[in-house]
């Protein structure tokens, strides 16, 4: 029973309740880091790490956190994990850390993490919350990676820094700039939503 529930939860966070395209949460960083695939991947790892562990910690402490200041406590827990992520990235990948700039720190205010801590971890046991954290993080990550893939491909003709499209390809410089991110995410949401609507009509 418990196992089935966990699995259900896992799949739901990847699809039906996906934080990015269904709940439209945490898209600040979705848009900001997705012009290069590599940066996106690093960012996603940081995010999965933070959301998993903060969910777990909040859930462990949920009986001792006073209701009135719970937001503050949640933010502090999240911030501590983000500091770890920041220091690790700075130490191991200084170039990428510089490119990501403030966006690593901004994981703190990423609404997904806060939302999961508040909506799920505060009322569920640690094991389940851990699962919820991992799956929300992954659900977020794959959307980011898809968007980053297309933006990098169309914007610079490369994938993971390797040139894929030849000389004939004219770079769509708009894709690596701000508006491209908005359009790309909108198209992604459009695509997914149309699929969902079709599926519902078929039923």
């Amino acid at each position: 029973m418990a196992k089935g529930k966990a699995k259900n939860l896992f799949l739901r966070n990847l699809g039906r309740d996906n934080p990015v395209f269904v709940q439209i949460l945490g898209i600040c960083s979705t848009l900001a880091v997705t012009n290069v695939l590599k940066n996106t991947a690093i960012m996603c790892m940081g995010l999965v790490f933070t959301t998993t562990l903060s969910n777990f910690t909040v859930s462990l402490l949920r009986k001792w956190i006073p209701a009135r200041i719970r937001m503050m406590v949640e933010v502090l827990i999240i911030a501590s994990y983000v500091i770890i992520v920041d220091i690790v990235i700075k130490a191991t990948l200084p170039d990428i850390s510089r490119q990501l700039g403030p966006y690593v720190g901004l994981i703190i205010t990423n609404c997904i993490i806060m939302g999961r801590a508040e909506a799920f971890a505060m009322s569920n046991p640690p094991g389940l919350s851990l699962m919820d954290g991992v799956s929300s993080g992954l659900g977020y990550s794959y959307v980011l990676l898809v968007i980053a893939f297309f933006r990098e491909l169309m914007g610079s003709g490369t994938v993971w820094g390797l040139t894929v499209l030849g000389d004939w390809w004219v770079n769509w410089s708009i894709m690596v700039m701000a508006p491209g991110a908005f359009f790309m995410l909108a198209i992604f949401i459009w695509f997914i939503k149309s699929l969902v609507i079709k599926e519902e009509e078929a039923k």
């Binding site: 701000a178 491209g180 359009f183 949401i189 459009w190 939503k193 149309s194 609507i197």
Partner: peptide, 18 residues
């Protein structure tokens, strides 16, 4: 239909960014 809500808002934001 698929663009209602967030989708169209993002497109408008994109045009605004342009």
């Amino acid at each position: 239909k698929g663009l209602e809500g967030a989708g169209i808002t993002l497109i408008v934001a994109g045009i605004m960014a342009l």
